[in-house]
Design a protein around this nucleic acid. Structure first.
Length: 422
RNA sequence: GGAGGGGUCGCAUAGUGGCCUAGUGCGGCGGUCUUGAAAACCGCUAAGUCCUUCGGGGCUUCGUGGGUUCGAAUCCCACCCCCUCCGCCA
């Protein structure tokens, strides 16, 4: 979230941000309510100060008549506070709720644009290969017996599938390979976080209130299923004041992700591109504000490195203001070419959330002993999403005879399988 | 799920309605002393927020939320978390 102080002092910046993002936001209501809140606050605090001062006199008063007279005098003040306090609380709660609906301010470097159509390709490596003989992964997967759509549906309904044999193994190999790359080569610390979190955690990382419709929720125990490891990783240091020397912190986590995908019903129903459950390796960075721009480039390169190692054609798309996520100030998507379905697939989204999530989750650091705490900047990026990486690997490494070669980088994790055949 | 114990400043503890503006010890920071260090002694030791004439001043926070009261760390209610034992269990 943005600080109320920032909104109050820079309403023009917020208004511009909302316009650039093509999204409405309760800015005017916030400004008006903030004025009222501060009036109420001054008044109740003045009364409380009076009450505190009188309380001391009452405590010190020995003579019963004098004491009673002082107590009676304070009853009016007390009653007035009882009137104002609930009003103040209501104003604060409402203000809080409204502030949570304002998205992050786009980075000045983020290109202004209306929608996805205005995103620009920043760089591309490799070509859009097209061969008539190449099959989409769903045909390939069924023919090889490594993706079972029917049984997935039998167990759980549409948008579920199961991997078996070399398919399951290859996904596991991809996970192990990605984790090893980020840990050993890029210097991340591995984390295995809970996939079920409490509601508060979803608010802190910005999933609630906006994406409620896309989340699974266990009503019985009030647990929420994470839609991405970004959620637990953000909250890992929630409420903490980190010593300045600890930054930057780089974490990588493999988790399942759960999404209801209600809003996109009917889209991408074919294959394994968009399911209710999928696996993802996620990178996450906590750093000082002045470092986040460089950290974003570094994380982008770490995501790309996975594509390079797998020998995939990839491109980097710079997201414009109209397509920018709620939490992000700046985002790059990494897409890989899928010759079977003939499209670029988003396998990673790398974002600088600046201090937006840090403020929600109250994550701060101290530059040096005794210095005022400041909010950290947070960055997250997929490294990478598994199903789409699987698609790209299968479709790129398929051979005219219908078999799929295992990329060299995965061989150490495949237990001797070099080619997947029916 | 059951029984019991507990949650107070970075850590450890004290505090059973007003002298709590939360004490004490440890740790940390600064200083005195010292060639240097230790010891001893002295001082400091949180966060948030509002107002400000920029000197400061106020308010909130003792697990969380309500309640009683002129006044709550302290009394009442609900909830959360931790520890010990029992049950169950991958």
């Amino acid at each position: 979230m943005l600080s109320l102080q920032f909104i109050r002092e820079h309403p023009d910046v917020v208004r511009r941000s909302l316009a650039d993002r093509q999204t409405p936001g309760p800015l005017d209501e916030i400004l008006a309510l903030d004025l009222r809140r501060r009036d109420l606050l001054s008044e109740t605090e003045r009364l409380r100060a009076e009450q505190n001062a009188a309380g001391k006199k009452i405590g010190a008063a020995k003579e019963p008549g004098e004491r009673q007279r002082l107590i009676d005098a304070m009853k009016g003040v007390s009653a007035r506070i009882d009137e104002l306090a609930p009003e103040l609380r209501k104003a604060e709660e409402r203000l809080q709720a409204l502030a949570l609906e304002i998205p992050n301010i786009p980075d000045p470097g983020t290109r202004v644009g209306e929608s996805e159509a205005d995103n620009v390709v920043r760089m591309q490596s490799g070509e859009e290969t097209r061969d008539d003989w190449r099959k989409p992964h769903w045909e390939l997967g069924e023919a090889l017996g490594i993706i079972d759509f029917e049984r997935g549906v039998k167990l759980s309904g549409s948008r579920f599938y199961l991997l078996r044999g070399a398919g399951a193994r290859m996904q596991r190999a991809l996970i192990a390979f990605m984790l090893a790359l980020h840990i050993d080569k890029h210097g991340y610390t591995e984390v295995y976080p809970p996939a079920l979190v409490k509601e508060e955690t979803m608010w802190h990382s910005g999933q609630l209130p906006k994406f409620r419709d896309n989340l699974y929720h266990d009503a019985e125990e009030d647990y929420w299923l994470v839609p991405t490891a970004e959620v637990p990783l953000t909250n890992m240091h929630g409420g903490e004041i980190l010593p300045g020397g600890a930054l930057p912190l780089h974490y990588v986590a493999y988790t399942p992700c759960f999404r209801r995908e209600k809003m996109s019903a009917g889209r991408d129903v074919r294959g394994i591109k968009r399911g209710h459950q999928f696996d993802k390796v996620e990178m996450y960075t906590f750093c000082a504000p002045e470092c986040s721009a460089d950290e974003l480039e570094a994380m982008l390169d770490d995501a790309i490195d996975v594509c390079r190692a797998l020998g995939l054609s990839y491109r980097v798309v710079e997201i414009c203001t109209g397509d920018l996520g709620f939490n992000a100030a700046r985002t790059y998507d990494v897409e890989v070419w899928s010759p079977g379905v003939g499209e670029w697939l988003e396998v990673s989204s790398v974002s600088n959330c600046t201090d937006f999530q840090a403020r929600r989750a109250n994550i701060r650091f101290r530059r040096e002993a005794g210095a005022r705490p400041e909010f950290v900047h947070t960055l997250n990026g997929s490294g990478l999403a598994l199903p789409r990486t699987m698609i790209a690997v299968m479709e790129n490494y398929q051979r005219p005879d219908g078999s799929v070669e295992v990329p060299e980088a995965l061989l150490p994790y495949m237990g001797g399988i070099g080619v997947i055949t029916p």
